[in-house]
Amino acid sequence: MKLNIKYTLLFLICCTLLSCVEEQDFGQYDDLRLTPTAEASILYIESPESFINSAGDVDIISRDFNFDAFSSDVFAKRVLDGTITYIVENTTSKRINVLVELLNADGEVIDREEIETTPGMNIQKDIAYGNSGKNINIIKFTSSIRVTARNLGDSTSTSDLPDPKIILKSSGKFRLNIK
């Protein structure tokens, strides 16, 4: 009799536990959206005022940088929108004009930003791409970046600040669709 009570209790406990288990919905994966934000530096360029003075009337900086990170399939197929931030710090005694051009694989300019700064001035320029800005395809097709900086001042003066220079920094912050 004791044995029957044990089996009966065990059976009732099992039935109670099984009745509390919810049916699993494995279709939730289809509704899942993963859109992390990725942020990274793009360029860092600096030029001391002594170099700017010795350059004379030619461009201080005129260089193309290979940048296939945006056009790689891993990024280009998943990018939704984002922002490129340019920061120009000018501790020289000169007006400086900085031109940043995004180029496609054929070397054609697909976007450009011009930043003019005066002595002692720091400028930050945020450029949006995607839903709230320029066409996101500009980012997807960028294969290289051309930077040109021109001295709009003289080639003799020097700043009173220690270690005067022009610095261009840029970074990108983009939302990606993982799934």
Rank of each mutant, 00 (worst) to 15 (best):
C15A: 15
S72I: 01
S50T: 12
T118K: 12
I5P: 00
G107V: 06
G107T: 02
L168S: 07
P36M: 01
E101M: 10
K77W: 08
I136W: 02
A76Y: 01
S143N: 14
I87R: 10
R175T: 11
T158D: 08
T92K: 05
S143I: 00
I145F: 05
G82C: 03
N177T: 07
P162N: 11
P162W: 02
E23Q: 14
V98D: 02
L18V: 06
L3P: 00
I145H: 03
F11A: 15
N151G: 02
I123M: 11
A40Y: 10
L152K: 14
S72Y: 01
S132K: 05
D68I: 00
Y86M: 07
Y7I: 08
S54P: 12
V58A: 15
L12R: 07
N151C: 01
A55D: 04
I115A: 05
Q28W: 10
N177M: 12
D64G: 10
G56A: 05
S54R: 14
T83L: 05
G27F: 09
F51V: 13
I5S: 05
S132V: 04
V147F: 09
I110P: 02
R63W: 13
D30N: 15
A105D: 07
P164K: 13
S47L: 12
M1V: 00
S93M: 00
N122V: 04
T142A: 09
Y7D: 03
D31V: 09
G82K: 02
K77Q: 14
M1E: 08
I136H: 04
L3F: 03
K125G: 04
A149S: 15
P36V: 00
I60N: 11
L3W: 04
D163L: 07
I5K: 08
I84D: 02
G82R: 03
D59N: 15
N97V: 12
D106K: 10
G120A: 08
S41Q: 11
V74L: 12
P164W: 06
I136L: 07
Q28T: 15
D57Q: 13
T142H: 00
M121Q: 15
D81I: 01
D126T: 06
R78N: 11
L161V: 09
P162E: 10
K173W: 04
I123C: 04
I110W: 08
L9P: 02
I167Y: 02
G133M: 00
I13S: 13
E49Q: 08
T37N: 12
E114H: 05
